[in-house]
């Protein structure tokens, strides 16, 4: 039996009679890129929110490294090693690019009030190391020479990359990416795919991502799961899923631009 990093069993989530998630099972193996696809309103983001402690599921289990995440708050989940980005860019106004990444390292740093006030030797060393690591991450996102800039001046794709490395700064074992390529043009999408691959290969991070763009999904994923109306209709290797009649049906039933390009 394979050891899964994230195991979800029988997940249910209802909002005032609307069932957003219905008996969803999901097994994410370690060091893989796992994509969640499905038409709008299929419950992909709700699933992310349930994993990340935004709201508790009504039923079901979410186990991360064998420990349940149910009942934990967002920041506790984050400190367990699950980082996340949002569908819309949520960078911090008024903080420089470098500082954004440093905030990402918050949970890994130890400096407290006393350390910060006295600038103790340990706190300065920690800060130096944090800045060094942040610069490495910025290099990964090709943002090195923009570290003193404010995020508003960056192009959209750069903001997305910054958000991903900010999440990566917390050294997670699992990274949840909500439509990382939304609003990003083709060449920049290439770069994004490259970045996500490097995150898996060089950092050993498991990536669970939601994506609409099928070219991204097929070229990037080790595994794919299809959600439709809150239900998982298919999962497996990308090729298997593409051949799965239920998956095709889920997409044919929705808007044409979401169809599989086979």
């Amino acid at each position: 039996m394979i050891d899964y990093l994230l195991q979800i069993r029988g997940l249910m989530k209802r909002f005032d009679g609307l069932t957003a998630l219905r008996w969803v099972d999901l097994n994410v193996p370690e060091h893989t890129i796992y994509s969640l696809i499905g038409p709008n309103g299929a419950g992909k983001t709700t699933l992310f929110d349930c994993i990340h402690g935004v709201y508790p599921p009504d039923e079901g289990e979410i186990n991360f490294r064998g420990h349940s995440l149910i009942g934990l708050s967002t920041d506790q989940v984050a400190r367990r090693g699950i980082a996340r980005t949002y569908q819309t860019v949520r960078l911090f106004d008024g903080m420089t690019v470098l500082e954004q990444v440093l905030v990402g390292m918050h949970g890994r740093m130890r400096t407290g009030v006393i350390g910060a006030l006295l600038r103790t030797w340990t706190s300065r060393r920690e800060e130096r190391r944090a800045i060094d690591f942040a610069r490495q991450l910025l290099e990964l996102a090709r943002l090195s020479d923009l570290d003193e800039q404010f995020p508003q001046v960056l192009p959209h794709a750069a903001q997305r990359r910054l958000e991903i490395v900010r999440a990566l700064a917390s050294a997670p074992s699992l990274l949840l990416l909500d439509e990382p390529a939304a609003g990003v043009d083709e060449t920049e999408t290439e770069e994004m795919i490259n970045l996500i691959h490097r995150i898996r290969d060089e950092f050993g991070v498991t990536v669970l991502l939601v994506e609409h763009d099928m070219s991204v999904v097929t070229s990037i994923s080790d595994f794919v799961a299809v959600l439709d109306y809150g239900q998982k209709v298919a999962d497996g290797r990308p090729q298997e899923v593409q051949a799965n009649p239920r998956a095709i049906e889920a997409f044919l039933g929705s808007s044409p631009d979401l169809q599989f390009r086979l």
Binding site: H52, V54, S73, T74, D75, A78, R79, A83, R84, Y86, R90, L91, F92, D93, G94, M95, E99, L102, V103, G104, H106, G107, M109, T111, G112, V113, G115, A116, S123, E127, A130, R166, A167, A169, S170
Partner: peptide, 23 residues
Amino acid sequence: SRIGRAWRAIRADKRAAQTLGID
């Protein structure tokens, strides 16, 4: 410092700050 950065992150976007593990 680390503490002040957390404060400013909360000011800018509470949810996103929490997502990064800030209590």
